[in-house]
């Protein structure tokens, strides 16, 4: 989103990746690690297609990925019904290579008696990775410039098209990663996994202070945004309020975050 693009298809890609890995594992003899890698290649290709379509057509990525959201979700549901007749497929636990995959992606580790899921480590890892990429690398500078002004970036010789396409591939990779942690946790896939995740992602990013128009934002902000989302989701129940109010609260926070961003922008006269 810092580069000025949206990827709405990530939710569907999560469902797709999960189902693809599960089906390739249970219906063939590949074993789970190989199935995951194969799926990753497919998913990266889908991300590439998203990116190239946006770049070549010049249309807003919002529309293009809204289309691919439905296409990918539809394919996931249709194909899993054709192959298994169901929309939920399980039985990963008995498959080859499940042990190693779940050790890497979903097991817990224990610090002074408390269990933490390993995904916390991954969360920190990707946080640090994203921080270094955005704030300290050359590509990071290109991403900000692309989001702030494509024309200026292009005149300075930045390969704007490649930057945008690779970012769509990166979001596709992230969707694949989430799918892997989910299926190793649950031992199977559901075609509806990841539904509305695209909106949650946008909410986390916006609450984290990223400008919707691109060119400004940070990983730390986004991580805090995601934390706030999670804390509110759990906390509203502990606070004794009815969980039905969660969505109201989230929506209100999203709107106020955008408003505050707008004020910030005016302050800098841009």
């Amino acid at each position: 989103m810092i580069s000025g693009e949206f990827d709405l298809s990530i939710g569907s890609l999560i469902g797709f990746s999960g189902m693809s890995v599960t089906l390739l594992t249970t219906e063939t003899n590949l074993g789970m690690p190989l199935a995951s890698i194969l799926t990753l290649i497919i998913v990266l290709f889908i991300g590439y297609c998203n990116g190239i379509t946006v770049v070549k057509s010049g249309l807003p990525s919002f529309i293009i990925t809204l289309g691919s959201l439905f296409v990918i979700r539809g394919i996931t549901i249709a194909v899993s019904k054709i192959i298994t007749g169901r929309t939920q497929v399980g039985g990963l636990e008995e498959s080859k290579g499940y042990g190693i995959m779940s050790t890497i992606f979903s097991n817990s580790f224990t610090i002074s008696g408390t269990d933490f899921p390993i995904s916390i480590l991954w969360w920190l890892f990707f946080g640090v990775f994203g921080y270094l990429l955005l704030k300290h690398s050359q590509v990071g500078n290109w991403i900000f410039a692309t989001g702030a002004s494509k024309e200026s970036a292009e005149l300075m010789g930045i390969p704007v098209h490649n930057v945008r396409t690779s970012l769509f591939m990166l979001t596709a990779f992230c969707a694949w990663f989430i799918a892997i942690t989910q299926i190793t946790t649950f031992g199977g896939a559901d075609v509806l996994r990841g539904e509305q995740k695209e909106f949650i992602a946008i909410i986390a990013v916006v609450i984290g202070g990223t400008l919707l128009t691109g060119g400004y934002g940070s990983i730390l902000g986004t991580m805090i945004g995601a934390l706030i989302f999670g804390i509110v989701k759990q906390g509203i129940i502990f606070a004794g309020a009815d969980a039905d109010w969660f969505q109201v609260f989230m929506g209100a926070m999203l709107i106020s975050a955008v408003l505050v961003n707008g004020i910030f922008r005016k302050k800098y006269a841009y």
Binding site: L132, H136, S137, Q138, V139, G140, N141, W142, F144, A145, A148, S149, E151, S152, A153, L155, M156, G157, I158, L211, G215, Y216, Y268, A269, Y270
Partner: peptide
Amino acid sequence: LAIIPIMNIYRNFFLGNEPIHNNYLNMM
């Protein structure tokens, strides 16, 4: 289109010509 107002001054100065620290990681 000379500069990008929302980015900071030194990032603008080196836009598209970022000085590289470490050739393996492309760090600025």
